[in-house]
């Protein structure tokens, strides 16, 4: 899909989401909110994957973002949504900028394992922190949005949904711009041939560093939005299975377009949710079969369906 067309589709989708929100059934609105949160995280994973790196530890930033937003209330008494989200992005940005110094030296399985190790360290620390409820976690509420009280109002859910959709739109637009920029295009070059990139005069280390920090901040943003919409956070968010879920959605969606992560997340959440309902004993199998089918028939992810249609037409 061409860039201009993606911009149009993104904007149309935002408008459709915002306009249809009040008419959606409550479960569908929540499912969309959760999908948008996941989609934001996976958008960052997509960028990393385009750089040739698979992180099995993005739960670290997802969880860190959620805790950065959630602990503002017990520690500082802050329940303003914009500050919670800002804090999440700032904290994950700072931590990832530091960790990237080490991680950018590794590739492939070593990168995956090292990032997994860092996320499990955070998990271990949080489990030992009884003050934050250990594995039980604690509840999070965003009481106000730009100073206006939203908690407990009739439009609380819609506002959270709208904020999430709007931020996801900004992220997707930003990512689209970034992917088209000089540095953004370097990502795939790094994946294909690092040596050649260095000979061209570009820095592989810098590219990976920047892309890693961007993807971490997106994960932190997704985590804080998830914390606000779900209303509860626990260390499970940093556990390796959560990171694995992000990899799952990234592979399911494909890395062809900035729309893919949101499509993948929406399909993943929908299948999971209906599988819970219709086969409570075998819902995991439904997800596994979907994954198998996608890997066997659509190695480029669900997005390749659209890419191919375009070529054929």
């Amino acid at each position: 899909m061409s860039r201009d067309r993606t911009v149009n589709v993104l904007t149309v989708m935002l408008v459709v989401l915002l306009a249809s929100g009040p008419f959606l059934p409550r479960w569908a609105m929540f499912l969309s909110t959760v999908s948008l949160c996941y989609g934001t995280v996976v958008l960052g994973m997509m960028l990393l994957m385009r750089t040739g790196l698979v992180s099995f530890g993005h739960g670290l930033y997802y969880c860190l973002g959620a805790y950065a937003a959630g602990t503002l209330q017990p520690f500082f008494g802050i329940t303003e949504m914009s500050i919670m989200i800002g804090a999440a992005v700032a904290v994950t940005g700072a931590v990832s900028a530091l960790l990237a110094l080490l991680l950018r030296k590794y590739r492939d399985i070593f990168f995956a394992m090292l990032s997994l190790a860092f996320s499990m360290i955070l998990y271990g620390l949080l489990v030992k922190t009884s003050a934050l409820g250990s594995t039980d976690g604690f509840n999070v509420t965003a009481e106000t949005l730009f100073g206006v009280r939203i908690a407990g109002t009739a439009y609380e859910r819609y506002l959270i949904f709208a904020v999430t959709a709007f931020l996801a739109w900004i992220c997707a637009m930003g990512m689209l711009r970034y992917l088209g920029s000089h540095r953004g295009r370097l990502a795939e070059a790094v994946r294909d041939n690092e040596l050649r990139v260095e000979y061209m005069g570009a820095s592989v280390a810098n590219t990976i560093h920047v892309n890693y920090v961007v993807s971490a901040m997106l994960a932190g943003l997704g985590g804080s939005l998830m914390a606000i919409s779900v209303g509860h956070i626990d260390p499970e968010m940093a556990y390796w299975t959560t990171s694995g879920e992000f990899v799952f959605i990234t592979i399911l969606a494909g890395t062809g377009n900035v729309l893919a992560p949101f499509l993948g997340a929406a399909i993943f959440e929908t299948i999971r949710s209906f599988a819970y309902e219709y086969s409570p004993n075998t819902w995991q199998m439904a997800l596994g079969i979907t994954m198998l089918l996608v890997i066997m028939f659509l190695p480029g992810g669900l997005w390749s369906l659209f890419a191919r249609t375009r070529k054929a037409g």
Partner: peptide, 24 residues
């Protein structure tokens, strides 16, 4: 009875709880 699995962590359970009420 409508039976739902509790596995999957609090995030998924909140989503499933909302589904139980507004979808089921």
């Amino acid at each position: 009875l409508v039976v739902i699995d509790e596995a999957g962590g609090a995030t998924k359970q909140v989503a499933e709880f909302r589904n139980l009420i507004s979808r089921q």
